[in-house]
Computed example of a mutant assay.
Amino acid sequence: MTATIPQPETLPDGRAALPIRLSGGGLSLRLSPFGARVQDLRMDGVDHPLVLGSDHLAPYVGDMIYHGALVGRFANRIADGRFTLDGRNHLTDRNEGGATTLHGGSEGSAAQLWTVEAQSESSATLTLRMPDGHMGFPGTLDVRVVHSLPGDGTLAIEITATTDAPTPCNFAHHGYFALDGGDDVTTQTLRIDADRYLPVDARMIPLPEAPAPVDGTRFDFRTPRPIGDAGIDHNFCLNGSGMRRVLRLEAVNGLSLDVETDQPGLQVYDARNQEPILGLDGRRYGPFAGLALETQAWPDAPNRADFPDAILRPGETYRHRVSYIFARG
């Protein structure tokens, strides 16, 4: 018998996840309903992708599970896979070293096949229902995400969610950005509008004394400077509130990326632990191949009353907006 060869747009279990192609404002986007993920993002006149990705779905079931995906229902980490909500204890899937819940657990939103609700030339709406008890979280959560290319080199993402019971709710776009098409991003210049950050322990859980000032630390990016290779995988406590510009990334080729969001936090990860893998256009990704920029609530917020609230309750609507704005100098 001849073995069936998996197709680029088919999951291992045989389900199809046909890509959605969008264009507008000088950008073109390939979006997969598996994980509501950005597989590829291009800019007119630029000869390389702007993100790390793959032409095939298979890597996204393995080492690239979070690349380009919408992660949740609680992005980042929950210490010990446990929290107490309204006097009730909850145990969640400890999918990171048996010690923490990472990005909503092993079957979080990045591992789900979303439903395509609507699509136009420059916009797509995807939905997902996460049932009560899924990965240990309470409440049936209905999530909707809109990816759009509204113009002027902008990728806009808007996430909303409702629930029938109180639950942690914190989604993040987990894209890895690479502006110059090179092997690493360490020489790219970064500015972050944050006076504080969250120092973490060996499990990447915020320390009791967090947040801490960035002043005098390697996390001070208030003035633009190269990313470097010292290692960053931390939440920056963003200044201000409402929709505002919080970050600028620049490469020597003249490309820049500005990030605008209404969220209180931004996880910056320099991919220093990226295992070698084959990506878009046959590129080989290794350590520091891209920079993850995840606007979000603060990690472990369900266990920290001193952090911004990340609990969604019935009758409320979770809203998260982020825009990635690309330009050429």
Rank of each mutant, 00 (worst) to 15 (best):
L293H: 03
L278E: 14
E294Q: 14
G279V: 08
E260G: 04
D281K: 02
P276Q: 11
W298S: 00
D270M: 09
L291C: 09
Y285N: 04
F288L: 10
P299W: 03
D300F: 02
L280S: 07
W298C: 03
Q267C: 13
D262G: 13
A271C: 15
P276E: 09
I277D: 03
A289I: 04
D270I: 06
I277T: 14
R272Q: 15
E260Q: 14
E294V: 10
L266Q: 02
G290L: 04
G265L: 05
Q263E: 14
D281A: 14
R283F: 00
G279I: 08
Q263M: 15
L278H: 09
D300V: 04
G286N: 07
P264E: 06
A271Y: 01
R284H: 13
A292W: 02
V259G: 00
P299G: 01
T261I: 12
E294T: 10
A292D: 07
L266P: 00
G286W: 00
V268Q: 03
G286Y: 02
P287Q: 09
P276T: 11
A289F: 04
G282V: 05
R272L: 14
L280A: 10
L291P: 00
E275M: 10
D300L: 06
P276F: 11
P287E: 09
Q274A: 12
A289N: 08
R284M: 14
G290K: 00
D300A: 08
E275D: 12
A297G: 14
P264W: 04
D270P: 05
D281T: 05
R283K: 11
A297Y: 09
I277F: 01
Q267Y: 06
D270N: 13
A297M: 12
G282F: 06
T261N: 05
F288I: 01
V268F: 05
A297L: 07
D300N: 15
R283Y: 00
